[in-house]
Design a protein around this nucleic acid. Structure first.
Length: 158
DNA sequence: CGAATTTGACCTGCGC
DNA sequence: GCGCAGGTCAAATTCG
């Protein structure tokens, strides 16, 4: 891969710098992070992982100047899965999706995956390992589906 | 008309 | 005990 696979990727997941707040989450057993490679022109925080997510919040953290988006499973209200999507501070072309919990249902797309992202995902990363591991770059091709996406990508700002 | 997304405000937890 | 940051909820707005 390119350089993002190592240096960039590492910096993306763990900022072992001056930040001493909650920059390092313990990551529960059900939590895992996924790096999604997107297009630089794609400014949306939508990660197509085969599931349907509903955005319920967005916040800007000190770690990353980019806003972090919070998603919940929109398919089942009983699904305890939560997803946090944040753009990489080093490489704005990559999105770091943090999944917490596992789905109580199968992906609507028909995929067979139960926890890791489906829809032709290349790989996942960091299940419960130290942040020193090199994450895998997932090459998810974002298919413009959300209404906001069109807006964000660069259509008519209404 | 219904569903989804966006933005702001509020609440909780942790660190100093 | 106070302050800061992160996370969540609710109301409003817009698009299909």
């Amino acid at each position: 891969m390119e350089r993002e696979s190592e240096g960039g990727g590492e910096s993306c997941v763990s900022h072992g710098s001056s930040v001493k707040r909650r920059e390092m989450e313990p990551l529960r057993s059900n939590s895992y992070r996924v790096l999604v490679r997107t297009d630089p022109s794609d400014s949306s925080l939508i990660v197509k992982d085969g599931y349907q997510w509903r955005k319920y919040g967005q916040k800007v953290t000190k770690d990353n100047p980019s806003p972090r988006a919070y998603f919940r499973c929109a398919r089942s209200p009983d699904c305890p899965v939560k997803k946090k999507v944040q753009r990489c501070a080093e490489d704005k072309t990559m999105l770091v999706a943090t999944y917490e919990g596992e789905h109580n249902h199968k992906p609507p797309g028909g995929a067979d995956r139960t926890s890791p992202p489906a829809s032709g995902c290349a790989a996942i990363s960091l299940a419960d390992e130290p942040a020193t591991s090199v994450p895998v770059n997932v090459d998810l091709t974002l298919s413009g589906t959300s209404r906001r996406e069109r807006d964000l990508i660069g259509a008519s700002p209404r």
